[in-house]
Design a protein around this nucleic acid. Structure first.
Lengths: 203, 203
DNA sequence: TGGAGATTTGACCAAACGGTCAAGGCCGGA
DNA sequence: TCCGGCCTTGACCGTTTGGTCAAATCTCCA
């Protein structure tokens, strides 16, 4: 009865491939990554990789779509019925935690967008655009109600993306500039961003 | 007497190579760019390319170091003797203009940092770190004098970099999310960022 | 335990890549 | 106009890369 669509081995190897592909693609970009690198990181032979995925491109696409939900969740979780400032600060905090805990995922998306989003353009122009429009409407309502300062809602979202993802995407620069003394920039970054957005949003 | 170190032809071709390399490297990253692409964009044959530069890597390094000064100039130009808010807003404005007028240069550096700065680590850890330390000291003095709000000066600089470069590095995402209606996001971005930093810095 | 199907791999291929080289063309000064 | 040196290139090379294939091995259950 219980016919698993995936065997145990399939699940294990697919998982190993995703993990390896994330490691390699995020570090070198699509073109810079090689199947041999991914295969070695996954502990498989190259032909075995291609037994599970038809091509390098297919691995990349599968990886991106697999991570997309995780990536959009923090914005989705911004609650229209909650307290405006708390909701926005919560979004900033969750997004910064994502940069701290999943920097490879952040760099994977950054690479893709930097190259002109050749494999994500459709998703960006539909799903992401709709999600942002939806949340921008919520922000605008909060502004209309006088509960936060009036700002361009989409650029407000852009600035949250930019500042939080900066700590993952440009991590080597951040660490180099801060120096070796402070090994973890995230606590300070969290305090800074909370201050910034509190002042920005105050009516 | 006037023995030009470079002949006319050398100057013309070097210039064409830099322009072509900027176009190709910024669009595809170092590994994603090919010598054939650069040669074609420069209107030269591949062996001719390698007559002017010894290797692909040499082109990339020369391009980065050639653009580095331009890239650091806006921060250098922040005047310790000027009005604090005006100086910081001026820096933000110049940095945003750089993203608008030289997006390829921004993406070139973004690519380099994303990949872990394999060819710029030394510069980042010395020149950039010193420059930031210098300007952070200026910001701290302004805070001590009560002329701007007290904030972590380095994270303040990070947030300026992040928000202004976002419009160049993630341009396709910005344009896709804003939609086709508004072709040029920069005027709005400029207004948004001016508002943001005015509120953030107000004592 | 036998066998059907799932999994794995060594050997291989064609294309793309960075780079070389010898030879030919071109230019500017004497 | 002639010549030395600057400039240009077609042909080529070894390596890397994404991908294929037939054969071998393993897994699981009837």
């Amino acid at each position: 009865m219980t016919s698993p669509r995936q065997t145990r081995i399939q699940r294990r190897n697919s998982e190993a491939i995703f993990e390896a592909a994330l490691e390699v693609f995020s570090a070198h970009g699509f073109r810079g990554a090689t199947l041999d690198q991914i295969a070695e990181a996954a502990g498989l032979s190259k032909p075995n990789l291609l037994y599970y995925f038809p091509s390098k491109e297919a691995i990349h696409v599968a990886l991106l779509s697999r991570l997309l939900a995780t990536w959009l969740d923090p914005l989705k979780a911004m609650n229209p019925a909650g307290d405006p400032v708390a909701e926005i600060l919560g979004y900033v905090r969750r997004k910064l935690e994502l940069s701290r805990d999943f920097p490879r995922e952040s760099r994977l998306f950054a690479n893709e967008i930097l190259q002109g989003a050749p494999r994500m353009r459709a998703v960006i122009e539909t799903d992401l655009k709709e999600l942002v429009a939806d949340k921008a409407a919520v922000l605008t309502r909060w502004m209309d109600e006088g509960r936060i300062a009036r700002l361009h809602p989409v650029h407000l979202i852009f600035s949250i993306w930019a500042m939080t993802q900066h700590y993952a995407d440009f991590e080597v620069q951040v660490r180099a500039v801060l120096g070796e003394g402070e090994p973890d920039p995230f606590p300070e970054a969290g305090l800074y961003l909370e201050t910034l957005f509190r002042r920005l949003l105050a009516v």
